[in-house]
Simulated scan of single mutants.
Amino acid sequence: MSDTNRIGVSIDSKLLEKFDEKIEEKMYANRSEAIRDLIRDFLVKDELKYSNEEVIGSLTLVYSHDTRGISDKLNQLQHEDFTNVLSSVHLHLNEENCMEIVAIKGDSNKIKEISDRLISSKGVKHGKLVMTSFKNIE
């Protein structure tokens, strides 16, 4: 950060106390680092909401491996969009459940579309997409 500015913020003492507790819990070095991180998160979420920029994402799927053909179906869907699917990791959670973590990259609308297709596959119990921008983030 070559051009750093100082700002003043008025905050209720109880709110600041709770914020300081979270800062310590999350192991931030100081308030400034925590506030910068919150601002970046706010800006990335806003950017993703209103644009179709290139993003990187992680999709986590939990599914029952007992569902007939589920592994093949998820694999097939990932191959259909192989230019967007960078990697996947398969984990055995217990006798019944597996987790797939998929790293995906592309324009945000395409990433959402791919994720929706995978999450809505029969046998998937839960899916969650997390996207972030990697451009213009200081």
Rank of each mutant, 00 (worst) to 15 (best):
residue 94 N to S: 08
residue 33 E to D: 08
residue 35 I to M: 09
residue 107 D to A: 01
residue 137 I to P: 00
residue 73 K to E: 15
residue 89 V to H: 14
residue 119 I to D: 00
residue 84 N to K: 06
residue 112 K to Q: 12
residue 106 G to I: 02
residue 76 Q to A: 01
residue 126 H to R: 12
residue 54 E to R: 14
residue 111 I to A: 06
residue 86 L to Q: 10
residue 15 L to K: 14
residue 131 M to I: 08
residue 43 L to G: 01
residue 116 D to H: 12
residue 26 K to H: 13
residue 133 S to Y: 12
residue 121 S to G: 09
residue 123 G to L: 09
residue 118 L to R: 09
residue 42 F to V: 00
residue 131 M to S: 11
residue 119 I to W: 00
residue 6 R to L: 09
residue 20 D to F: 00
residue 112 K to Y: 07
residue 131 M to W: 10
residue 39 I to V: 11
residue 45 K to F: 03
residue 15 L to M: 13
residue 23 I to R: 15
residue 56 I to H: 05
residue 46 D to G: 05
residue 43 L to K: 12
residue 138 E to M: 08
residue 100 E to V: 01
residue 99 M to F: 11
residue 138 E to H: 11
residue 33 E to T: 01
residue 86 L to T: 04
residue 42 F to W: 03
residue 68 R to C: 08
residue 31 R to H: 04
residue 131 M to L: 15
residue 128 K to Y: 03
residue 135 K to N: 15
residue 7 I to C: 03
residue 114 I to W: 05
residue 99 M to C: 12
residue 103 A to Y: 11
residue 64 S to N: 11
residue 12 D to R: 10
residue 58 S to H: 14
residue 134 F to K: 06
residue 39 I to L: 10
residue 135 K to I: 08
residue 2 S to M: 13
residue 12 D to Y: 05
residue 101 I to Q: 09
residue 122 K to L: 01
residue 94 N to M: 02
residue 54 E to C: 07
residue 86 L to S: 05
residue 20 D to L: 01
residue 111 I to V: 14
residue 36 R to G: 00
residue 122 K to R: 15
residue 41 D to Y: 05
residue 31 R to T: 01
residue 127 G to L: 08
residue 6 R to Q: 09
residue 73 K to G: 01
residue 51 S to P: 06
residue 34 A to N: 15
